[in-house]
Design a protein around this nucleic acid. Structure first.
Lengths: 170, 170
DNA sequence: GACGATTTAATCGTGCACGATTTACTTAGG
DNA sequence: CCTAAGTAAATCGTGCACGATTAAATCGTC
C-alpha cells in the first residue's frame, strides 16, 4: 500500500531530476542534476522513519518528537526548555505546547526554576520514568527495520552528519 | 546561530545512542546502537534541506512542498490530485488545502475532469508557468550547498533510496 | 436499470515546525 | 537605585502531515 506510492516518488523525482539537463526520453543513465533527488531522498527517508516510529510509538501513546524529548529526559531529568530545544533543534514556540501535552498525559511536570524565574525545568513524573521500560524495545526494532549492519549504519550516519553540517553552514 | 544548535543535536543524540548499551562515560569509540542516530540524522538532514530551500523559496513565495508540486506541474501539466499525491507520497487531506493555496496565489487552476467528475485536474496558469524561470537557479544553489560532487550525491541518493525501500517494507 | 462496492476529493481534528511578537525576569551600566 | 539591554518562555498565525470520516461519482454484477 505505502510502498507503491513510495516507489512512485522515487521514480517520478528521479525522472524529474534527470529530465532538466538533458533530452526528456533519452539516456536513461548518467543523472545530470541529482540535487532534487538528494533533497527528496532525505525528505522521503525522514518520512519513512517517521512511519516506522509512528507504528511503534502508537502503542505507547507518544509521537516521535515527544519520544525524542522523553529520550532526553530519561538520560537526564530536570532540563530546561532551552536545553531541550538545543538538543532537538527546536525553540519554545514548538516545545511549549509539546511539553504541555506531555504534562497533560502525566509524563512530565513543568516548573519555574526558583533561582531564575525565567527558566522552566521539565521533570519526569513517576509515570514518565516508568514509561522508559515500555519504550526499551523500540531502538532494536528500528535498527532491524533499516536492514543495515551496525557498521553500515555508522558510516551512513557519518555521511549524513557531514552533509547536514555543510548544509547548515551554507 | 543555527549551526551551533545543530551541532548540539548531533552531539547530544550521539551520546544518547552510545550511552544505552555501554557505560556512560567510557569508550568514546565503537558506537553500539546507532539506530537513534540514523533516524535523527535523517530527520536532521531533512530539516537542514528545508532550511536551505526555505531561504531560496521565500524569494519566489513558495513553500517547499508547494515547490515540489510546481516541479511536477512544470514537467507535466493537468495532473490529477491523485497523481500528484502518488508522486509526492501525500493524500488529498494534505494536498487539497495546499492546492487551494496555490490557486489562491494564482499559480494553478483546479477543475473537475469532464469525463470523470470524481477527479480534479490541476493546471498551471500563465503566472504558474512563468514562475519556472524564477525557480531555475534553485537546483544549482542546493547542489552547491551540499558541497558534494555529483557522483557522491548520486551514491548517497542510491543509499537513501535503498534505506527508504527497506523501511517502508518493514 | 438498480444496487453494492470501489474510487476520488474534500473535510475534520490533532500535532509539529517556524517566523514574529510579547511578557516576565535578570543583569549591566550610569 | 534605576533604567537599558539581554534572556527565557509563551503566544499567535500560517502551513504541512496524517488518521479518520464523509460525499459524490463510477463501475460491476445481477
Amino acid at each position: 500500500m505505502r510502498s507503491t506510492a513510495c516507489d512512485q516518488i522515487a521514480h517520478d523525482l528521479y525522472l524529474m531530476a534527470k529530465e532538466k539537463p538533458m533530452k526528456p526520453d533519452s539516456a536513461t543513465e548518467a543523472p545530470g542534476l541529482p540535487d532534487h533527488l538528494i533533497c527528496f531522498a532525505a525528505y522521503s527517508v525522514s518520512h519513512a522513519f517517521n512511519q516506522v516510529y509512528r507504528s511503534l510509538l502508537d502503542e505507547i501513546g507518544l509521537t516521535y518528537p515527544q519520544y525524542l524529548v522523553m529520550l532526553l529526559l530519561w538520560r537526564g531529568d530536570g532540563r530546561t526548555v532551552k536545553e531541550i530545544g538545543q538538543a532537538m533543534h527546536l525553540e519554545s514556540n514548538t516545545l511549549t505546547p509539546m511539553l504541555k501535552r506531555l504534562e497533560a498525559i502525566g509524563l512530565v511536570e513543568r516548573s519555574r526554576d526558583t533561582t531564575d524565574e525565567r527558566v522552566v525545568r521539565v521533570k519526569l513524573t513517576q509515570a514518565g520514568a516508568e514509561k522508559q521500560k515500555a519504550a526499551e524495545h523500540i531502538p532494536a526494532c528500528v535498527a532491524r527495520a533499516t536492514g543495515l549492519q551496525p557498521e553500515d549504519l555508522t558510516e551512513l550516519v557519518q555521511t549524513l552528519g557531514d552533509l547536514r553540517a555543510r548544509l547548515t553552514k551554507a
